[in-house]
């Protein structure tokens, strides 16, 4: 699961601080102490952020485990020449996930601190974009629909492309979970069932 997860520079610094401290303290304790103290003073939230990302990672893993367990009980999604069979498998899995997560609410998957980080990353990304690339991002983002957990992304809505350079800076997801834009919101989408797993509202600037 670690391979799936982007540890941002910010979080990486936090996660590595204790290791770095252990390693360097053995050689030059006084200087290492000073270095760690200085870094913690510069960025006291680093460890908290790393913990939030780790929490996000655990929640995703839990979701994937649940989906795997439900898939095993059903016919798994696998190549089939029969579109009716494919649709049935997809719907059955979606229904089972819905039932298992019937009490899910916003923020159950994305911890608040990670949501804030995602918000900040998106805002920074949009600040660096020129009007043309901004326009390109908003192209075909479905409008005037609100995300609802456990609902599927409507067929009529295009899966607007999340800019790859932005994806580079967001916490990484396993291959079958995706970030997608919906109006001004970002949703965490199950790529196999099109189920909305979680969302963050109003992350995109008005367009």
């Amino acid at each position: 699961m670690n391979a799936y997860f982007a540890v941002t520079r910010f979080a990486l610094a936090g996660a590595l601080l204790p290791l770095l401290a252990d390693h360097t303290m053995a050689q030059t304790p006084r200087r290492a102490d000073q270095g760690v103290a200085q870094r913690q003073a510069e960025n006291p939230n680093a460890n908290v952020q790393a913990e939030a990302l780790a929490e996000f990672q655990q929640r995703i893993q839990k979701y994937l485990d649940l989906r795997m367990e439900l898939s095993r009980k059903l016919k798994p999604l696998s190549p089939t020449p029969n579109p009716a069979d494919l649709a049935a498998r997809q719907e059955n899995l979606a229904a089972a996930i819905r039932e298992a997560r019937k009490n899910a609410k916003p923020g159950d998957m994305i911890p608040t601190r990670v949501a804030t980080q995602i918000r900040t990353t998106i805002a920074e990304d949009f600040r660096r974009r020129n009007p043309d690339t901004k326009r390109a991002v908003f192209n075909e983002v479905p409008e005037r629909i609100r995300p609802v957990i456990n609902k599927t992304m409507p067929d009529s809505a295009a899966l607007a492309t999340v800019p790859p350079l932005l994806l580079n800076n967001l916490p990484r997801l396993p291959d079958n979970l995706q970030y997608r834009f919906m109006d001004r919101d970002i949703v965490l989408l199950d790529g196999d069932t099109r189920l909305i797993v979680d969302y963050i509202l109003n992350v995109l600037p008005p367009h």
Binding site: S78, P79, T80, Q90, E140, L159, Q178
Partner: peptide, 20 residues
């Protein structure tokens, strides 16, 4: 494409072998 359900990758005549 952006209008395609990613589950199309499981539709055998598209020869995607379940891969995006």
């Amino acid at each position: 494409g952006n209008h395609d359900d990613p589950a199309q990758r499981f539709y055998k005549p598209f020869n995607m072998d379940g891969k995006r």
